[in-house]
Simulated scan of single mutants.
Amino acid sequence: MLTLTLLVKTLVDLYIMVLLLRIWMQWMRCDFYNPFSQFIVKITQLVIKPLRRMMPSICPIYTTVFLLTFILTIIKFPLLTLIETHVLIIDPVYFLGGLLALLKAVGELVFWVVMIRSLLSWVSQKRSPMDIVLYQLSEPLMRPIRRILPAIGGIDFSAMLVTLILYALNYLGMNLFPGIWYRL
């Protein structure tokens, strides 16, 4: 059962990340003609297109994508419990667990975007389509840090500081919600 739990958790987490990435790309008004952006849109469009007809958009963020992401985070915990114990338990705490899972997924997505952008900066030097989108997403987070802590000796420490802030927030989540944070 642990293998099935790992597989389901990984697939659900990856799809949540892709949905959050789509929301973030829309919010930051990334270039949607970019091949990487088109990939994200195509793998989410199958599920979102039928739901979009039922829900209107609010501001620059599609409420359909956000609602689907939130529903997936709420369903993930009871689904994993069902796989592990073969008992379906419906509990209002899952709503709080879904909210916490959404916050944790946002933090993980920011972490991976900053890390992949930092690694690609050594190799591609802003020539790949993925690098352009990652730059558009992460630059608003890193620019304020660069104003406070400029590059020293040609080395940019803003990605490291963003990562340290994310680690601190993760540890705060572990302290505030010790029983559930690890399972999210």
Rank of each mutant, 00 (worst) to 15 (best):
102 L>P: 01
112 W>Y: 15
120 L>Y: 03
149 L>F: 15
103 L>M: 13
155 I>S: 02
141 L>M: 11
144 P>T: 14
119 L>N: 01
116 I>P: 02
106 V>Y: 02
110 V>R: 01
98 G>C: 10
105 A>N: 10
142 M>D: 02
155 I>V: 15
146 R>T: 09
101 A>T: 14
155 I>T: 10
106 V>T: 13
150 P>D: 03
135 Y>W: 15
140 P>D: 03
121 S>C: 02
100 L>N: 05
127 R>M: 14
107 G>P: 03
143 R>Y: 12
153 G>R: 07
144 P>F: 12
135 Y>K: 04
112 W>L: 13
104 K>P: 00
143 R>Q: 09
103 L>E: 08
147 R>C: 06
129 P>M: 09
149 L>R: 04
100 L>T: 05
111 F>D: 02
138 S>F: 00
117 R>A: 08
127 R>I: 08
100 L>S: 03
117 R>M: 10
129 P>L: 08
136 Q>D: 12
137 L>D: 01
147 R>W: 14
131 D>L: 06
148 I>M: 10
128 S>G: 07
134 L>E: 01
127 R>N: 13
118 S>K: 03
143 R>V: 10
116 I>C: 05
108 E>T: 10
126 K>M: 12
100 L>I: 14
147 R>N: 15
143 R>L: 13
111 F>I: 14
144 P>N: 10
117 R>Q: 11
